[in-house]
C-alpha cells in the first residue's frame, strides 16, 4: 500500500509526533511512503533552528533522521515556508534574509507536489491540529 502523508502542525504539536509514529508503523508493516508533504505550520518540522529542551523529544531531529534513514521524499511547501520564515539557501539569498534554516533531507517545492503525491498514493493521510 502506498501512503502520502501530509503534516499541517509544528513540531511542538502532538500531531507531529503522531504523524511520525504512523509513518514509522506504516514502513514497519511493509508499506511504502511515496512522499511526506509539510504544509501550513507543518513547515516548522523541517526547520533546523528548532531547539528542544534536552529532556524532551526532538521531533525536528527525529523527522530528519527518519527521512534520511529511509531515503524518503520530504517536501516542504515553499509558499507556506516563506510565510513562516523557513528558508533554504536559495530563498534566503533571493529575499536577502540572514539565516538559512532548511537543509537536506528537506526540499522546498510547490503544492503541485501534494497533488502529485495524492495521485500516486493509494491513501492520503493528513495530520494536524493539536
Amino acid at each position: 500500500m502506498k501512503f502520502a502523508i501530509a503534516l499541517y502542525s509544528a513540531a511542538h504539536s502532538p500531531s507531529s509526533r503522531r504523524a511520525l509514529r504512523f509513518a514509522e508503523a506504516a514502513l514497519a508493516s511493509g508499506h511504502e511512503i511515496v512522499r511526506l508533504f509539510f504544509y501550513q505550520d507543518g513547515v516548522h518540522n523541517a526547520s533546523s533552528n528548532v531547539v528542544t529542551p534536552q529532556d524532551e523529544q526532538d521531533l525536528t531531529q527525529q523527522w530528519a533522521a527518519f527521512v534520511s534513514h529511509h531515503q524518503l521524499d520530504g517536501v516542504v511547501c515553499i509558499a507556506a515556508a516563506l510565510r513562516r520564515g523557513v528558508l533554504n539557501e536559495d530563498e534566503a539569498a533571493r529575499y536577502q534574509r540572514p539565516a538559512v534554516n532548511l537543509k537536506a533531507p528537506w526540499e522546498l517545492s510547490g503544492l503541485g507536489q501534494l497533488h502529485d503525491a495524492i495521485q500516486s498514493a493509494d491513501r492520503l493521510i493528513c495530520f494536524g491540529g493539536p
Partner: peptide
C-alpha cells in the same frame, strides 16, 4: 488501537478524513 492497527484501519477504510 496502537499505531500498527491505526495503519491497518487507514487501509481498511477507503479514505481517511482527518479533521485538522
Amino acid at each position: 488501537v496502537d499505531y500498527p492497527r491505526f495503519v491497518e484501519l487507514s487501509i481498511h477504510y477507503d479514505k481517511v478524513n482527518s479533521w485538522l
